[in-house]
């Protein structure tokens, strides 16, 4: 049922991108998705595949700082750009405040949506100093969670925002 490949179209395309701060050079077939590149070529399995067509948000990564769905992003279209995945959030032994908040609020159950959810949350927290609960709901509305009913996730992101504001010295 899958359309047949066109003969001669499987040439590899060389790419240079920055993944979690590391320069990566790799050659992939044009039809490789960014999610496949991350998970199967680079071994960065933190980003998840839940639907593989842009409906669930489990594969959310930051591309040049913006949250995108890696399952419907071509790897070749990430050439020359910067990718951040969940694996980049913790610095050494230090968890990102939103990671700590998710742990402390019981906001991860099965954990499958968590990496994508965290990347959407990080983007929100990077850009907004004091998001309201409605802001948080909006920012996470492209990430389905099936376990938590969202309540504890929203609590965790709000708590992280407060903590980050305090760390910056008020506001």
């Amino acid at each position: 049922m899958t359309p047949e490949p066109h003969p001669g179209s499987t040439a590899l395309v060389p790419l240079a991108l920055v993944v979690n701060g590391d320069a990566v050079r790799v050659a992939v077939p044009a039809e490789r998705t960014l999610l496949e590149l991350l998970r199967y070529d680079l071994g960065l399995t933190g980003s998840k595949q839940g639907c593989d067509k842009g409906d669930c948000g489990a594969c959310t990564v930051l591309l040049d700082g913006e949250p995108v769905l890696a399952c419907i992003t071509l790897a070749v279209d990430a050439d020359g750009r910067g990718v951040e995945t969940v694996e980049s959030l913790a610095k050494g032994q230090k968890l990102h405040p939103v990671q700590t908040a998710v742990v402390n609020h019981g906001a991860a159950q099965c954990g499958f949506c968590t990496p994508g959810m965290l990347m959407s949350a990080k983007h929100l927290l990077d850009g907004s100093r004091t998001p309201t609960r409605e802001d948080v709901k909006q920012a996470l509305s492209g990430n389905l969670c099936r376990c938590t009913g969202y309540t504890k996730i929203l609590d965790a992101v709000e708590a992280a925002a407060r903590e980050m504001a305090e760390a910056r010295g008020g506001d």
Binding site: A30, E31, V76
Partner: peptide
């Protein structure tokens, strides 16, 4: 995985 069909990539 839903494999994409193969194609040639052009990025003008």
């Amino acid at each position: 995985m839903l494999p994409l069909p193969a194609f040639e990539w052009v990025s003008p």
